[in-house]
Design a protein around this nucleic acid. Structure first.
Length: 210
DNA sequence: AATCATTCCCACCTTGGACG
DNA sequence: CGTCCAAGGTGGGAATGATT
């Protein structure tokens, strides 16, 4: 019998114990992100003069899709009008700074965060930015607001992962991946209304915090 | 290539609250 | 009280990654 129990493979135990828990966590992640998406959409719509009373999940997704489509149209319009205000390099830099600020702000709110490690990382990120953008000398110093940050792997700037999530997806360290997702969703200060600010022909390759 | 562990997704069922 | 709907729980299976 004990043999049988031990033969109740890890798979069985996993299915019995871990799976329900992970599924709960997964739903929680979905709901958390939907909640934050809802907040963002409500804020956005209200800033546009629309009043939102109640949103169910499907509504949140519909509104988001509609809003993004609208933004896409506006961007195309802008481009058609010859708006070349930002080069790809500038676009990348802007996204980089935006992302670092956002992550930095989030991490700075984490209890027990190692400040000296954060400082080191900030320094590193600032140096990386200088290396990435030698042409943009006047703005070479990284205007990061919070004292903490995360390490973004040093690579060719345009081969940086499209998002923090995708960079962790498939990692053997799944808890890291989950944590990444959670922190990604919890950066609620990302403003949907500003998603189109960084306009670049290379946008598929530019790292964005969203 | 085969095998195993893990992750993810989906469909179905249950539950609880709102409403007529 | 019955019905509807949103949300959570769960089982099954596909997909993926690691190991041998």
């Amino acid at each position: 019998m004990s043999l049988q129990i031990s033969e109740m493979s890890k798979t069985y135990q996993y299915r019995k114990v871990m799976k329900p828990m992970l599924e709960r966590k997964r739903r929680a992640r979905i709901n958390k992100c939907l909640d934050e998406l809802k907040d963002l959409m409500v804020a956005t719509l209200e800033s546009e003069g629309e009043h939102v009373t109640r949103l169910e999940k499907a509504d949140i997704l519909e509104l988001t899709v509609t809003h993004l489509q609208k933004m896409k149209e506006q961007r195309q319009l802008k481009r058609a009008n010859g708006d070349k205000s930002m080069s790809p390099a500038e676009g990348f830099r802007s996204g980089y700074i935006h992302a670092v600020n956002e992550v930095s702000r989030s991490l700075s709110q984490l209890p027990g965060m190692n400040v000296s490690l954060g400082t080191q990382l900030m320094t590193h990120l600032g140096q990386r930015l200088n290396q990435l953008q030698p042409a943009v000398k006047a703005t070479a110093m990284l205007p990061i607001t919070a004292p903490l940050s995360v390490h973004i792997a040093s690579r060719d700037p345009y081969s940086v992962p499209i998002s923090p999530v995708s960079s962790y997806a498939g990692s053997p360290n799944s808890s890291l991946a989950s944590a990444s997702l959670l922190t990604t969703c919890s950066s609620a200060s990302i403003d949907v209304t500003k998603m189109e600010e960084v306009d670049s022909d290379e946008e598929e390759n530019v790292w964005r915090p969203w």
